[in-house]
């Protein structure tokens, strides 16, 4: 049924930390690796080794340059590079679900995961049009819509060791930029992280009410700004020069050369 559930028991989703993501694309690779050989049709590639390669991915990492406005204190502020992983946000008001004519797209009542039943998908592509985030991609070989399943075949999988029962992207992230949990429970680790760091919705004006949250980058050090008063760097004293005058052979050489 493609009407959305009124509420879901849990709201499983991801919290993505834009401060710590290093843009290594490991999540992209592990996502494709897991999902091409598990739930549903494989994620096909077209012309993968040719001149015009393209393929189906459920998770992609963009990179943005953010240029702060110049101020009198900082006439030439340095631009900031932000790596930006993007996958399905498992929205509470998922517009992709309600447009589906066959009932292939649905949002689960028990955990809020948005899934596609590929046996019912006619490949009309309307759900991809309805998604503002570009989370859904039509597989060109299979003719059905593919999207992030939140690794539904890992997170409940008793055959996996417990530490592996998280989405592949979360498990693989080397910089801990991706967190998985229940965003409907205010006491969960992910909810606390969102509260602490000011997690945000992408495109809130679209009214999709995304479950996945993004943590904004922390303010950066500003090397070109005047140093604030006081010793803010606890390591600085340890890096002070330990000797002003050279000794030994170098000292003799220094003194001799001075005399010439």
């Amino acid at each position: 049924m493609t009407t959305l559930p009124e509420t879901t028991t849990r709201k499983l989703g991801l919290v993505i930390d834009l401060d710590t993501c290093v843009g290594c694309h490991a999540c992209v690779v592990s996502c494709k690796g897991w999902n091409t050989e598990n739930y549903g049709a494989p994620l096909s590639d077209q012309d993968p080794y040719g001149a015009d390669p393209s393929g189906t991915f459920l998770n992609r990492v963009h990179s943005y340059e953010v240029q702060p406005l110049a101020t009198s204190a900082m006439p030439h502020p340095a631009a900031q590079l932000v790596h930006f992983p993007k996958s399905c946000l498992h929205c509470e008001g998922a517009p992709c679900v309600t447009v589906c004519p066959t009932g292939a797209s649905y949002k689960r009542v028990e955990d809020g995961i948005v899934l596609v039943n590929e046996a019912d998908c006619i490949g009309c592509g309307l759900c991809a049009w309805a998604c503002p985030y570009g989370a859904r991609e039509m597989d060109q070989a299979e003719g059905v819509m593919k999207k992030c399943t939140l690794c539904v075949d890992r997170i409940y999988n008793d055959n996996l060791p417990e530490e592996d029962r998280v989405p592949a992207c979360v498990r693989t992230c080397p910089s801990n930029a991706r967190h998985f949990g229940d965003l409907g429970d205010p006491d969960s680790d992910v909810s606390q992280l969102v509260a602490e760091r000011g997690g945000m919705d992408l495109m809130p004006e679209q009214g999709t009410k995304p479950v996945n949250q993004y943590l904004p980058p922390r303010p950066k050090d500003t090397l070109d700004q005047p140093k604030p008063a006081g010793d803010i760097d606890i390591l600085a004293p340890f890096l002070e020069p330990v000797m002003d005058e050279p000794k030994g052979f170098l000292g003799w050489l220094d003194r001799t050369l001075e005399k010439i």
Binding site: M1, T2, T3, V97, T98, V99, C100, P101, T102, G103, A104, D120, I122, C124
Partner: peptide
């Protein structure tokens, strides 16, 4: 199958 979801689609 597209005839089934007239309630929402």
């Amino acid at each position: 199958k597209a005839f089934s979801q007239w309630r929402s689609s």
